[in-house]
């Protein structure tokens, strides 16, 4: 997947470039709007990351120009601005996404995947999810591990479903709050950890291989290996 990274701060550009390359993207980077435009026209990129604070123009204007040029690849907006511009909201509704700095790399990667999935060819929605010996029946809202039915509450099921859909990948606390509870908040208490802790108590029974792993400081990962 070819990715165009438009970011004027070289430190961040370098760090993102190597991280994204590690994650399997072919990264081209531009430090200003003009270069980005030139690269984007012939580049055939699958996805774009655009920082709003560019030296020569506003990131939003760049995106609008690229759209006029017929570039339809999804755009992930990076912004150091705290309050999100209304125009960004507009773009977000159009299928794109934004992330405010500072952000967790895991979240950036997750949002990129999410954008690509949304814009990719529709896959037949599975009714069952399977990760190792853990199985989720999405229609009956029932989870089993090694054939044993897990007694999950509705909310715990949604949380586990989210972890399963991202099996093998890190999800952060704010991603969990966003996707499972629909809130972009950052509580200064450990509310998410308690939920995970409880879920783990039900999923990873005694004697079983623990599936839900905590990556301290980052988030959680549901092991798929």
């Amino acid at each position: 997947m070819r990715l165009l990274l438009v970011e004027d701060e070289i430190d961040i550009q370098n760090f993102l470039r190597s991280s994204l390359q590690e994650a399997g993207y072919q990264v081209e980077a531009a430090a200003d709007g003009k270069t980005a435009e030139r690269l984007a026209i012939g580049g055939d990129f699958g996805i774009l990351i655009v920082d709003l604070g560019l030296p020569d123009q506003d990131g939003i204007d760049l995106i609008l120009k690229l759209r006029q040029l017929g570039i339809t690849a999804p755009v992930l907006i990076l912004s150091a601005r705290r309050t999100v511009d209304d125009r960004v909201r507009g773009l977000e509704q159009g299928g794109d996404d934004y992330l405010t700095k500072p952000f967790a790399l895991a979240e950036l990667l997750a949002r990129l995947r999410n954008l690509l999935r949304r814009n990719g060819p529709p896959t037949g929605e599975a009714t069952r999810l399977r990760v190792l010996d853990l199985e989720l029946d999405l229609l009956r809202r029932e989870a089993t591990r090694s054939g044993q039915v897990l007694q999950l509450t509705q909310q715990e099921f949604v949380l586990l479903e989210y972890l399963c859909r991202n099996a093998g990948r890190v999800v952060t606390r704010s991603m969990i709050l966003d996707k499972v509870w629909g809130m972009r908040i950052q509580p200064d208490t450990n509310v998410v950890d308690v939920h995970i802790y409880r879920l783990r108590g039900k999923v990873d029974g005694p004697g079983q291989k623990p599936l839900i792993r905590t990556l301290r400081g980052v988030g959680y990962v549901l092991k798929d290996r």
């Binding site: 705290r82 500072p102 950052q186 200064d188 301290r216 400081g217 980052v218």
Partner: peptide
């Protein structure tokens, strides 16, 4: 690992405080 984890948590708190 441990000190870095603590640093990241500290940074998250700092960000929230700033906001």
């Amino acid at each position: 690992t441990e000190p870095i984890v603590i640093v990241i948590e500290e940074l998250d708190r700092l960000t929230e405080f700033l906001n």
